[in-house]
């Protein structure tokens, strides 16, 4: 027996729905007979077409009122949940997704389950799977609280598959008073310049860590190798915190989750924080001076050596192949 109705909190960049949202819609189809999306932001019609294709029949559109979408949406979702009675509301473990689930949990007085990577329903009972200790231990949880259950899932936990559906019907709920939560206004939006494939979508990802030695080494070692392989470049938290590269490049628990065909870790020790974001890559190559570094525990090919010697030779060898 599946659930009756599941909502997915949808997110979009501009008019493009995020892949992680489509992954949740795909899973929602499997566990519920009715799937609907709730969304705060612009381009509602474009969003409705995309969420509809992935199985949502209705898009509940909310005016974000110039605030942070997740925080404004929570007030509206709380009101709607009382009348519409969804069994569960799924969120992406993203910045806005966490804001929305957090405020909603207080408004509805429900616990949250976060960092999920599996969901199943058996006899109407929802089971949620997560991983702790950097993925070393798997934990299944069930909730004894009343519906709606509030659940956040990490990106890349499920494959996004189109259901071939038409556009979802848009129900406009307009501006709902979010109280002081709505007082925080977004004044400006900055996007880091980006060339080549996106980090989350690239077939090949090359990431650098503290072991590259200096900020100046990032471009020749990490960025250039990634470009040569037509891949994307990323970073560990250590060098993001150190200010060597922007936050948008961070792979890990607090950054992006990637699952490329090949992940190349250069000078990354493999702290739990980093492993959570990349250990499900198909193939992992690691180059690090310290042979005892935990990254070698997940690497398919490990080279214990100096990135300053190995990477230039690697670039030359690849260039020679044309």
């Amino acid at each position: 027996m599946t659930l009756n109705k599941v909502w997915v909190y949808a997110e979009a960049n501009g008019d493009k729905v995020t892949t992680a949202t489509l992954e949740l819609l795909t899973k929602a189809r499997e566990i519920a007979s009715t799937v609907e999306a709730v969304y705060a932001g612009g381009h509602a019609d474009a969003v409705a077409a995309q969420v509809g294709e992935y199985g949502a029949t209705t898009l509940h559109a909310i005016d974000a009122q110039g605030g942070m979408p997740g925080q404004v949406a929570a007030a509206a979702i709380a009101q709607l949940a009382h009348s519409e009675a969804p069994d569960a509301i799924l969120f992406v473990q993203s910045y806005d997704g966490r804001d929305a689930i957090a405020r909603l949990s207080v408004k509805l007085d429900r616990p949250v389950l976060t960092n999920g990577f599996s969901l199943s329903v058996d006899g109407g009972q929802l089971t949620f799977g997560t991983a702790i200790f950097g993925g070393a231990t798997l934990v299944d949880c069930t909730l004894s609280s009343d519906a709606p259950h509030l659940i956040a899932v990490r990106p890349k936990s499920f494959a996004a598959e189109s259901a071939g559906g038409g556009a979802a019907a848009v129900t406009n709920h307009g501006s709902i008073d979010a109280g002081r939560a709505g007082e925080a206004k977004v004044l400006e939006v900055f996007e880091e310049e980006q060339s080549g494939p996106k980090l989350e979508e690239a077939e090949i990802v090359v990431s650098g860590g503290r072991g590259i030695g200096a900020q100046e080494s990032y471009k020749p070692l990490v960025e250039e190798l990634a470009k040569q392989l037509k891949g994307a470049f990323g970073a560990s938290r250590a060098i993001v915190d150190a200010g060597w590269v922007p936050y948008a490049l961070q792979v890990g628990q607090t950054g992006k989750t990637v699952k490329p065909k090949v992940y190349i870790a250069l000078g990354i020790s493999g702290a739990t924080q980093h492993l959570v974001g990349m250990k499900n890559s198909d193939n992992i190559i690691a180059v690090n001076k310290d042979g005892e570094a935990p990254i070698f525990g997940v690497a398919d090919l490990g080279i214990v050596g100096d990135v300053h010697k190995v990477v230039p030779a690697l670039k030359d060898a690849i260039a020679a192949k044309g």
Binding site: T137, L138, V139, T142, S144, F296, V298
Partner: peptide
Amino acid sequence: RQAISNVEQAPARQAGEKFEDDGTGAEKI
């Protein structure tokens, strides 16, 4: 208001090969 229904060790990732770089590291990659 939540219960843990199961706890288990994640299947370990198949251990790969590890080499000391003797100048052939790049070739192996």
